[in-house]
Computed example of a mutant assay.
Amino acid sequence: MTTEQDPAYEWTSVQDAPVREVFPGIRVRPLWQGDNGAKAAVLEMDPNTGWQGVDVHEPGPEEVFVVSGVFNDGARDYPAGSFIHAPAGSSHVPQTTTGCTLFLFYPEG
């Protein structure tokens, strides 16, 4: 067992991540991007907000973990603790009535 952190580890805190508003009341905080285009982010949605248009997953899939609140993909509600795998080529219309925080992972960019 090693007591020192592996120097290859990369880390950041959500509070330190830059904030970019993508639509009114919807903010993304990029956390990490890999050499192959993979990336991780936190998405914060205020109550009664929605994505403007359809969110299409290209070039690869999107992995979503609902950290807090209730997320709706345009078809159903996902409460905190839900995990959603959206395959490449699929789409949805992200929205929320309660507000929510999501952890997003894009394994292929």
Results as ranks from 00 to 15, higher is better:
T3Y: 14
T3K: 13
T3E: 14
E4D: 12
Q5P: 07
D6Q: 06
A8P: 06
Y9F: 15
Y9Q: 13
W11L: 09
S13A: 14
S13M: 13
Q15M: 11
A17N: 06
P18N: 07
P18Y: 06
P18H: 07
V19P: 05
E21Y: 07
F23P: 02
F23R: 10
F23I: 06
P30I: 04
L31S: 01
G34T: 08
G34V: 07
N36K: 11
A38D: 13
A38E: 09
K39T: 09
K39W: 11
K39E: 12
A41I: 06
A41M: 14
V42L: 09
L43Q: 13
E44F: 01
P47D: 09
P47I: 08
N48R: 11
N48M: 10
N48K: 10
N48S: 09
T49Q: 09
T49K: 08
G50N: 10
W51E: 04
G53T: 03
V56R: 12
H57R: 09
H57P: 02
P59G: 09
P59H: 09
E63I: 10
V64Y: 03
V64P: 02
F65G: 02
F65W: 10
V66S: 05
V66A: 06
V66N: 02
V66G: 01
S68P: 06
V70A: 04
F71H: 00
D73G: 02
A75W: 10
D77G: 03
D77P: 01
P79E: 04
G81Y: 02
F83G: 07
F83T: 10
I84K: 03
H85N: 12
S90K: 01
S91M: 10
S91I: 05
S91C: 10
S91P: 01
S91D: 11
H92M: 00
P94M: 01
P94A: 01
P94F: 00
Q95V: 03
T96I: 03
T96G: 03
T96N: 01
T97H: 13
T97Q: 15
T98L: 05
G99K: 00
C100T: 05
C100A: 07
C100M: 04
T101Q: 15
T101H: 06
F103A: 08
F105W: 14
Y106M: 10
P107L: 08
E108I: 05
E108S: 10
E108T: 08
G109C: 05
